[in-house]
């Protein structure tokens, strides 16, 4: 097995060791949102035709959970290694920047997808969710977790202290994921807010993902796919540049 595989494996073991906090807790949180919002808003919010609000909510909550956990995994692992200093043992290994990137991103994607899958498995007990296209669902789950895992690598390298990372999470990741149409269809928003929502890259992740379940979406699924793929490419180039130049990692 290659060195990158071992780094990937280490990163996966790392979050499974604290699965209570990294897997179970986010699944429970998503289910609490589901219970509360579906109870309060069922029948009050207009979403897609023929789709009950509770079913509509599930893909959004899944994607929000995927996004937040993929980001949390790569960013927290990197900042922790940097702050404790044990990152030197990864940096002195004969791993290329592409291998480092792949290992951190792939492990974070595993966490995102596992947690997202957990939300789905428990939610389908509660309400019936259709599956329109499994390929689209999986495609967006992979894309979404990859985009946020990459963003996590960037933030983890950039941040020097835990509170800088927390700021990144609280002021960028959280608002963008909450305002991306998890709880509503943006067609129910006033025109100005619809336009603003189109500038939020997370909106395309959730909209495309939702299409995989209902076969309906706010914007064409191809557009969502193109926007997120483009975001992934740009972020990956930035992360690879940082790793290749040892930005904030090698003095």
């Amino acid at each position: 097995m290659g060195g990158a595989w071992w780094l990937f494996y280490k990163e996966v073991i790392r979050f499974f060791k604290v699965a209570f906090q990294t897997v179970l807790a986010p699944v429970i949180t998503a289910l609490l949102y589901l219970l509360v919002f579906s109870h309060v808003l069922e029948g009050r919010v207009r979403v897609f035709e023929d789709v009950p609000y509770t079913a509509f909510l599930i893909p959004g909550l899944m994607m929000m959970t995927i996004i937040q956990n993929a980001f949390a995994n790569s960013s927290s692992s990197l900042i922790q290694s940097k702050v404790t200093g044990n990152i030197v043992f990864i940096l002195i290994a004969p791993l290329s920047h592409l291998e480092l990137f792949t290992a951190y991103v792939a492990a974070a994607m595993v966490r995102g997808v596992v947690v997202g899958g957990g939300v789905f498995l428990l939610a389908v007990w509660y309400v019936n969710v259709p599956i329109y296209s499994l390929a689209v669902i999986l495609g967006f789950a992979v894309l979404g977790s990859a985009v946020l895992a990459t963003l996590g690598v960037i933030a983890g390298i950039w941040a020097e202290k835990f509170d800088q990372l927390a700021a990144f999470q609280n002021f960028i990741i959280m608002p963008l994921s909450f305002l991306s149409g998890v709880f509503y269809s943006i067609q129910s928003l006033p025109p100005l807010w619809q336009t603003v929502s189109h500038l939020n890259p997370f909106f395309y992740l959730i909209d495309g993902f939702r299409y995989g379940f209902f076969g309906a979406s706010d914007v064409p699924v191809v557009l969502s796919f193109a926007v997120t793929l483009l975001a992934l490419l740009m972020l990956a180039l930035l992360a690879l540049w940082m790793l290749g130049h040892g930005y904030k990692l090698r003095q």
């Binding site: 097995m1 290659g2 060195g3 595989w5 071992w6 780094l7 494996y9 280490k10 073991i13 790392r14 060791k17 604290v18 290694s81 404790t84 200093g85 044990n86 030197v88 043992f89 990864i90 002195i92 290994a93 004969p94 791993l95």
Partner: peptide, 30 residues
């Protein structure tokens, strides 16, 4: 691959046990 370095600072990964730490490190070298 030809170099082994013991850094000056006492660094470790609090997530892992002693043997795991060594096994993963060996893994990074393939």
């Amino acid at each position: 691959r030809l170099l082994g370095v013991v850094p000056q600072e006492l660094v470790y990964d609090p997530f892992f046990r002693v043997r795991e730490t060594l096994r993963f490190q060996a893994g990074y070298f393939g």
